[in-house]
């Protein structure tokens, strides 16, 4: 599968897919998309990169261990739930703030933070599985 063309395209394809996955993640609350789909797209991107160029470059590229990313995602997700405790409302209640940045109102919410947590968990876990299976190629 490691044809020259595939190896040449793979980095661009991967970065495009990761960008797209973040786009899908962020628009998820109002349009089709969300953490699960975004995470799967990003994980597929990692898998494609791994098939094309080997697992080691992927591991270097994402810097953190994929399971670390996954665990961090779970932590972020839980934190998003715990945030509501400080507002005196039950666990996991959505909280919204609307800061204005450069004259544009941006909707930020604990729900979005939670969705990012979901995204990270899926990227980490599925990516880790895919990379681990690809790695066995060498032995």
């Amino acid at each position: 599968m490691r044809t020259v063309i595939f190896r040449a395209i793979a980095p661009y394809l991967t970065s495009l897919m990761v960008l797209f996955s973040i786009f899908v993640l962020l628009r998820g609350h109002n349009e089709p998309g969300g953490g699960f789909i975004g995470g799967l797209i990003a994980a597929s991107a990692l898998a494609i990169y791994g098939i094309a160029c080997g697992v080691e470059p992927v591991r270097r590229a994402i810097y953190f261990h994929p399971m670390g990313i996954s665990a961090f995602g779970l932590f972020v997700g839980t934190l998003a739930g715990v945030l509501s405790v400080f507002a005196g409302v039950p666990f996991m209640t959505g909280l919204w703030v609307y800061p204005t940045l450069f004259g544009v109102e941006i909707a930020l919410s604990s729900v979005l933070v939670f969705d990012i947590g979901v995204y990270l968990v899926v990227v980490g876990a599925i990516g880790s599985i895919a990379l681990a299976l690809e790695e066995r190629d060498r032995d």
Partner: peptide
């Protein structure tokens, strides 16, 4: 179903391994 798909896939991977 959305979460079920993702979880089913993780278990599928686990079974595979």
């Amino acid at each position: 179903v959305l979460t079920a798909i993702v979880i089913a896939f993780s278990f599928f991977a686990f079974l595979l391994v």
